[in-house]
């Protein structure tokens, strides 16, 4: 996609902002449409304030020519990729996983001697989703997943979010859907605070790492997945980048495995080899073998 800027762009937005927009798109595939440029300018402003830089043009130079350009791009990506989430956020989706997919996966692996389940939370933000998934798998360990080992791969582009994941400390807002029983079972109170820390028994199932979903060289290594959750991440991507990421997801999933997207996200016109599956109150995509 060629995006560089203004003559037809918004005169209120500086040309350097369009250049930074293009730069981010090139590095991470995240595209800021015209109506998101104000947001981008605001997030650049935060970084500029910290760096005591007064113009976007100077900041663009820092991002392209300075020795710190790579680390500064990290900082900027941290500013623009902060997600809003909570534990047990999309309950119909989680119910579909727990009541329909886990029994079906367990059944399909019944005759395999080494039973392993691998779920990827792609765009895990501050950790609520992968820890929720770990809790669900732990709940099912004595039932559908008897005899299974399991792991949650949790990745995000945002370093700060990943630090929050590692800390595993959450407040009222993030915990609003957690039942008192689960709060006691899977969290411990943080002394002198109203916050809770996720217990180590949950944490050990989750492996966090920083990953750019457009980094082909690393995406190929996230293999043999049973389920991928990538909710409200691809909305930041343009069509071309979205296709690239979805193709990686397709390649990385085991046959007949599932991809969950955000509530209103569709693969229509993006990828033809997934089939849409309806669950009560939720939808997902199932990987079907290519028939050509």
């Amino acid at each position: 996609m060629s995006t560089t800027a203004p003559p037809l762009g918004n005169p209120a937005i500086s040309p350097a902002c369009y250049q930074i927009r293009d730069l981010i798109y090139g590095v991470a595939g995240i595209f800021h449409a015209e109506n998101r440029l104000g947001f981008l300018e605001d997030r650049c402003g935060r970084r500029m304030k910290e760096l005591k830089i007064t113009s976007l043009r100077q900041y663009h130079e820092l991002l392209t020519r300075s020795a710190e350009r790579t680390s500064e791009m990290h900082h900027l990506l941290n500013e623009i990729t902060v997600g809003e989430t909570c534990f047990f956020r999309n309950q119909p989706q989680l119910a579909a996983l727990q009541r329909l997919l886990l029994p079906s996966i367990a059944n399909s692996k019944e005759k395999i001697p080494f039973k392993h389940l691998r779920i990827w939370s792609a765009g895990c933000s501050t950790g609520e989703e992968p820890y929720t998934l770990a809790i669900i798998l732990m709940e099912e360990a004595a039932r559908f997943l008897r005899g299974f080992t399991f792991e949650i791969i949790a990745t995000d582009l945002n370093d700060r979010s990943l630090l929050r994941c590692q800390e595993g400390i959450y407040g009222d807002y993030a915990l609003r859907n957690v039942s008192p029983e689960f709060l006691r079972k899977y969290f411990e109170p943080v002394p002198n605070s109203r916050e809770y820390r996720i217990r180590d028994e949950v944490r050990r199932y989750v492996k966090f790492s920083r990953l750019n979903l457009l980094d082909d060289s690393r995406m190929v290594f996230v293999k043999s997945l049973d389920v991928i959750f990538c909710c409200n991440v691809l909305i930041y991507f343009d069509g071309v980048s979205k296709k690239r990421v979805i193709q990686h997801f397709y390649n990385n999933l085991l046959p007949h495995s599932y991809l969950f997207l955000g509530h209103a996200e569709s693969l229509f016109g993006v990828h033809d080899d997934f089939r849409l599956v309806h669950f009560p109150g939720a939808m997902a995509y199932i990987k079907t073998p290519v028939q050509r």
Binding site: R99, L100, R275, V277, F279, P280
Partner: peptide, 23 residues
Amino acid sequence: DLLCRTSGLGYGYQENFAVVLEE
């Protein structure tokens, strides 16, 4: 009918089922 039932307007209870409409 299938869409009603997956959207919570079934027969007054939630069915536990998955359906690939295309198939």
